[in-house]
Design a binder for these strands. Structure first.
Length: 478
RNA sequence: CGGGGUGUGGCACAGGUGGUAGUGUGCUUGGUUCGGGACCAAGAGGCCGUGGGUUCGAGUCCCACCACUCCGACCA
């Protein structure tokens, strides 16, 4: 019953969620701040996480026929101005370049906040015939939006993302693409990140600037706030008309093509942290974790221990697991805490006692449970546990989503839930923007989406009481 | 953009009424340890966020600015 030595602790998650988040982000060595507000450094651990996200998503994009490109960083002001809704949405938060090499520019350039107009300009150059369609492009890059308040991953001035941009001969084909990519995001979030989603359509007031329709995956964080985790937009032929992109169809008639765009950003890393993390720090789903298994030798100076640990690490790697050996000269207890902070899903302890019994100790990050396994079959045991951890995390997140989803039939009920519990509130909605505004004034919540999975909760709008046949989700958002 | 908090070795913090900086941890070296953040010893490391001002003298007082952070309004 030794009194534990007081060590720097992170804030308890359920005491001050925002502070806990900031502590984890720093202590898990994910980011460092730079001297420019809102621009953070992704440290190797966060970058490795992002690389795993990229690898998985990029594979899914390739499977669905997409090609990667790289577009310029700069957009001339006149180009940005071409689509009026789009520029109105983004102009307030763009960064401008006014000088080059010390000379004032004749036309100022904005640093891309998103690349629709760059793709449009390019499409106008390369598309003439129906045979040139579709183009299914994607790019991995960073973009800049001059945010006023910033938080690591969740809202920064520069952030990394992918933006898919596609162009099609028909409206139907483009609409189908918009939904296909939304489902790719949803599958990725649930299967790889263990983040259950609510899929649906944004209301008119929440649409992307210039879009005819915006679809979203919404995730529920541990503190009851929603995170818009990926969006997919259908543009109709609005951009094509603004940028004069035309093609000749099979009947030799000039037509405007139809476009989509869809994006997912490093914000999702904030989502992973806030979905799975706990009082001991980060908890990473095995499928995305940079290190899936860490091998910690105990009493590494004793004969045979380090050798056995190295051999075990090699076998774990040979079995296809991302395994690391921590042979630094810290004490075992220090290493346990350190790798827990970093969210490593599985820890293997290997010391003289284990070697004497031809076994090792496996400790799960998610539950903290320890078990022993025969050394000879450690890879199989580790692989099985990683699968269990992955599905357990998804299950826990689903439980959180379920428990934090409430139903309301009146504005007063909505306000009560908003004030006492947060989470998602689902109601019937008349479809009016006035009710959205009213709900926001009264409860502070915004509409999240009109989910694809509709339920009938009644026939009256929870806000105005008018006839309603649409179910909508509301919530506080990041 | 409004309101609050904070800027002092890498990190976390002390430094009443002004006098040229200290503690913990981390770091380096050596030794002992090693199953939940080990211990001993000797070291290295700081134009006190930036710029002005008051003063013989500013970490300390005054003004401005900047950054980070939290809470709201706006956005991935």
């Amino acid at each position: 019953m030794a009194t534990e030595k007081k060590v720097e602790q992170i804030t308890a998650r359920d005491v001050d969620f925002a502070q806990w988040y900031t502590d984890v982000v720093k202590k898990a060595e994910l980011i460092d701040y730079s001297s420019v507000k809102g621009c953070v450094i992704l440290r190797p651990y966060a970058h490795a996480l992002w690389e795993n996200i990229q690898r998985t998503l990029d594979g899914m994009f390739k499977e669905t026929g997409h090609e990667n490109v790289s577009m310029p960083l700069f957009i001339p002001e006149s180009l940005l101005q071409k689509e009026k809704d789009h520029v109105a949405g983004f102009a307030p938060e763009v960064a401008w370049i006014t000088h080059g090499g010390g000379e004032p520019l004749t036309e100022r350039l904005c640093v891309r906040p998103t690349s629709e107009v760059l793709f449009c300009e390019h499409y106008a150059h390369i598309i003439q015939s129906w045979r040139d369609l579709p183009k299914l492009y994607n790019q991995w890059c960073s973009v800049v939006r001059w945010e006023k308040t910033t938080r690591p991953f969740l809202r920064s001035r520069e952030f990394w993302w992918q933006e898919g941009h596609t162009i099609h001969a028909t409206r139907e084909e483009a609409e189908e693409e918009t939904l296909r990519m939304l489902h790719v995001y949803a599958t990725f979030a649930e299967e790889t990140l263990a983040m259950p989603v609510v899929k649906g359509q944004k209301t008119a007031s929440e649409r992307f600037a210039g879009a005819e329709n915006t679809y979203t995956i919404e995730c529920m964080m541990h503190d009851g706030q929603a995170l818009q985790s990926g969006t997919s937009h259908f543009f109709g032929d609005g951009f094509a008309r603004a940028f004069n992109i035309q093609f000749t169809d099979r009947t030799n008639t000039l037509q405007y093509p139809f476009q989509t765009s869809w994006g997912l950003s490093t914000r999702i890393i904030g989502g992973i942290i806030m979905t799975h993390g706990d009082d001991n720090g980060l908890v990473l789903p095995p499928r995305i974790a940079p290190v899936q298994v860490v091998v910690i030798p105990v009493a590494a100076h004793k004969p045979g221990v380090l050798e056995a640990a190295r051999a075990l690490r090699a076998r774990l790697r040979a079995a296809g697991l991302r395994a690391r050996l921590d042979d630094s000269d810290q004490s075992p207890g220090w290493k346990f805490a350190e790798h827990e902070m970093k969210g490593v899903p599985l820890r293997v302890e290997l010391g003289p006692r284990d070697l004497a019994g031809d076994q090792c100790v496996l400790a799960r990050r998610d539950t903290g449970a320890k078990q022993t396994a025969p050394l000879e079959s450690a890879e199989a045991a580790a692989a099985a546990l990683l699968e269990e951890i992955q599905s357990h995390l998804l299950e826990a997140a689903r439980t959180n989503l379920r428990e934090r989803t409430h139903t309301a039939a009146s504005l007063e009920e909505m306000r009560h839930i908003a004030q006492t519990q947060g989470g998602f509130v689902k109601t019937m909605w008349c479809g009016g923007a006035a009710c959205e505004e009213k709900v926001r004034e009264v409860t502070g919540m915004k509409s999240r989406c009109v989910p694809f999975a509709q339920e009938s909760l009644g026939d009256a709008c929870a806000c105005c009481g008018a006839k309603a046949d649409t179910m909508i989700y509301w919530g506080f958002q990041y």
